[in-house]
Amino acid sequence: MSQAVTSSVSSSEPLDLIKFCLDEQIYLKLRGGREMVGRLHAYDSHCNIIISDAIETIYYIDKEDGEMKNTKKKSDMIFVRGDSVILATDATNVETN
């Protein structure tokens, strides 16, 4: 009985959601109004992450007209430190604009 409980709990850990994205497109929401989309290659329990062919979108308020704007940056291979990560999900769950 305890065996069954243990296995059901361990198979639904929050980090498993990131595990299922390995070698798939992942979406990260990051601190500082940043988002990142790319192919996930590695992660750990701190949410440190390595992504390839990443596109980073930085949102900011334009000082002149007060509108929200964004800039995009590309990176072939990037390590993201876990303390900047707010959330991670499968990129197909996210509407991109």
């Binding site: 850990e13 595990k19 390995l22 590695a42 992660y43 390839s52 072939d76 291979m77 390590f79 430190r81």
Partner: peptide, 28 residues
Amino acid sequence: IRYIHLNPVDVDTSLLQDAARREAIATG
């Protein structure tokens, strides 16, 4: 550190993915 940009030729992606899966099993 926020990001570290790496050269893709220095990174073995399949090795990384295997290591990530192994680490997930080990910590779980």
